[in-house]
Design a protein around this nucleic acid. Structure first.
Length: 183
DNA sequence: AGGATGATATCC
DNA sequence: GATATCATCCTC
């Protein structure tokens, strides 16, 4: 199995968000290999993107977003759920891609339709914030067999506060996939 | 439509 | 130190 290289992540978030569709997220935990296929993502472009966490000042929470590409940015939301992002672009460019839904591939029994639920299903929490995604226990790969699919672009979810940025089509999902969180 | 639930940012 | 806010999900 071949991990995605650092150069994959060192591109603009909009491109990475689309190319992550169909890729597999692998997590090795307690001797078990958990695998999910990414079916839905959202791009957060940087400080100029009013929906991105990095649009506010650089803080301890968002520090990872400002770092080099290929690292996990994980944070607690609404006191109960975690959200997982992949940091994109070179250090200093605070952009990232939110993983919003997975199709279960291996060792997943819980619901993975939604950013909070997929983190719960894969055992992703703040302990892996800042984790290198070119590591041996938490990484992304290309699927063994490549399949073609349509990509749908829609406005991002839960960012109504972001003015004109709320309506930009930066949410991407695989057409007709039953594991997308919502249409 | 409203509640759970707590870290974080932003005020005083 | 206090409070408003949240890139969510579930139940009613």
């Amino acid at each position: 199995m071949h991990r995605l290289p650092r150069t994959f992540y060192n591109r603009d978030a909009e491109t990475v968000a689309q190319e992550l569709l169909g890729m597999q997220l692998v997590r090795r935990k307690d001797g078990i290999e958990i695998i999910g296929r990414i079916v839905e993502t959202e791009a957060y472009l940087g400080p100029h993107d009013l929906a991105a966490h990095s649009a506010r000042d650089r803080t301890p929470r968002t520090e990872v977003m400002f770092g080099p590409p290929g690292y996990a940015y994980v944070y607690l939301i609404y006191g109960m759920y975690h959200c997982m992002n992949v940091v994109t672009e070179e250090a200093g460019m605070a952009s990232a891609v939110l993983i919003r839904a997975l199709e279960p591939i291996q060792n997943i029994s819980l619901n993975t339709k939604g950013p909070g639920l997929l983190c719960k299903a894969m055992g992703i929490d703040k302990n892996v914030n800042g984790h290198d995604l070119l590591s041996n226990d938490f990484f992304l790969t290309e699927p063994p067999t490549k399949e073609s699919f349509g990509i749908i672009a829609r406005p991002r979810i839960g960012v109504d506060y972001a003015g004109e940025w709320a309506t930009k089509p930066l949410r991407f999902y695989i057409a007709d996939n039953p594991y997308v969180s919502r249409k």
